[in-house]
Amino acid sequence: MKKSTMFSNILQTIIPKEEILPLINEAGYVDSARKFTVYDLFLFLSQAALQQWDGYRDGEKRMSSSGLATVDHSTISKKAKDVPFELFKQLLSLMIQKCNRPTRRRLRIPKELLVVDSTKITVGIGRLPWAPLKGEKAGIKLHVSLIADTGKLHKVTETTGYRPDISSCEDVLDDCFILVADRAYGKHRKFDDYLEQKQYFVIRLRDNTHFHEPELRTRKRPYAGTLEQDLTCQLGTASTLSKNRFRVVILKDPHGNPVILATNLHRPSAEKIADMYKKRWQIEVFFRWIKQHLNVPTLFGTTPNAIYGQLYSALLVYVLLKFVFDQGNAIVHPSAKLSFAEFDRLFSMNELQPEWTVYLTSNLTFP
């Protein structure tokens, strides 16, 4: 069985056509097409991400070999422009719900780390005049939360490139997790809201942050490694001063630059707080991976529906691949275990070991 056909079969098994129909009705879209339906567009965009097609014209040439209904590129473009992208956003949420369900049952009361950040995709201003940036650039952002220890996608939202990260943070948060984020999310007065909402966090502050009435925390042993201070204080100057006192852990990065972390966690050691923040690198790896492997920087259309529909479909492919990989790696013999990068490469080249092929064709199960 060809790789592309195998993936299409897996995708149609976990999200069959009948599950998408209520979402189409909910979006208020009337799918009157017979030759190329919304579901056909969904399969097309997913295959385009997996196989890194160059656009609608390139996809037109490859549809048949991928087991998809064939139409001309203008039909695909028109459909992508017409279908509300919120539908694909809901499909991504449905895929996340299905693929993360076993983890949630095992964890009971999870307090894992939820890493939050955004990635920007830029093009020329002529391509996206509705999303202008500085100069002759235009762009959009994907705001993402990722479960650090598993690499599973948790929530996603979209904005134009000018939207500040902090303004979209609420859309991807979950108070069942500990928020871990970089300086773009370090608004002092927002910390007061998190404290009231019982949203735990570890967030890096800007190097010039003002500490109001700092007090060193009691410590039984000397600082080790790159740790320098562990204190509590109010944050900011008079105009931005936080109402509450927060814990601040200060350390050095490998280049000797200060890393200042604010948190409302008081029981973990300073070393543990530092380790939590180091998990943030996983979202950088995630952004790099989707851009290299799912064609994310290559935007096919020019309208919000076409752009965001394509991107949400690509993220859905990531969620499905991660689920298939995690389940397979837990089943196959230790000698056949792979890293996610190895699995993706071999799967894309249709060169997986026989044990993996048997798993994908016969033993793959969905929640």
Rank of each mutant, 00 (worst) to 15 (best):
G135A: 08
V156T: 09
E271I: 01
R62M: 13
Q229P: 00
L311E: 01
T232F: 00
K61S: 14
F7A: 10
F85L: 04
V156Y: 05
S313G: 08
Y312N: 07
L231V: 04
S32T: 13
D207V: 09
N244V: 01
K190I: 02
K2Q: 12
D192S: 02
L316E: 07
V38I: 11
R57M: 10
F85K: 02
N9T: 15
E342T: 11
K252P: 05
I283S: 03
I109H: 12
T298Y: 06
V123P: 01
G139I: 01
L146G: 07
L311H: 02
D326L: 12
A131V: 00
P297F: 02
F343K: 11
K220G: 12
P367C: 12
I203T: 12
T75H: 03
A138V: 02
T5G: 06
T119N: 04
P16H: 11
D54W: 12
L45K: 03
R62N: 15
F347Y: 05
L114R: 05
P22N: 09
N350P: 01
D344S: 13
E351P: 05
G328I: 09
D207N: 13
L321R: 07
P334Y: 09
P22H: 10
C233A: 04
A80S: 15
K61Q: 15
W53E: 15
N100L: 03
N25H: 14
K17P: 05
P214H: 00
Q97V: 04
L142E: 02
L294D: 05
Y359V: 13
A270G: 15
L321C: 13
V180R: 06
I24F: 07
D72T: 10
P110Q: 11
V296L: 11
I15W: 08
T302N: 09
W53L: 14
Y318R: 06
L21E: 15
I14N: 08
L173G: 03
M95R: 01
F211D: 02
T75P: 04
I125A: 09
Q51F: 07
A131G: 05
V319G: 10
V123W: 00
A48W: 00
A224F: 07
H266K: 07
D275V: 03
L23D: 08
K35H: 12
K35V: 12
E26C: 03
S242P: 14
I178T: 13
R105D: 07
D326E: 15
S4D: 10
T103G: 02
F343Q: 12
V248H: 00
K111Q: 14
L227I: 14
R163K: 09
R219G: 07
S46Y: 08
I331E: 06
A48C: 12
L94Q: 15
Q51W: 02
I178Y: 06
T365F: 09
P334R: 08
E170M: 11
Q51H: 08
P297V: 04
F42A: 10
P254R: 05
N100Q: 05
L153C: 11
L227N: 14
S339N: 12
L23Q: 10
E158V: 13
D207A: 10
L179I: 02
L294T: 06
F7I: 07
P304Q: 10
F246Q: 01
I273Y: 01
I10R: 03
G256P: 04
F7R: 02
K89A: 15
V115C: 14
T237N: 01
G301D: 04
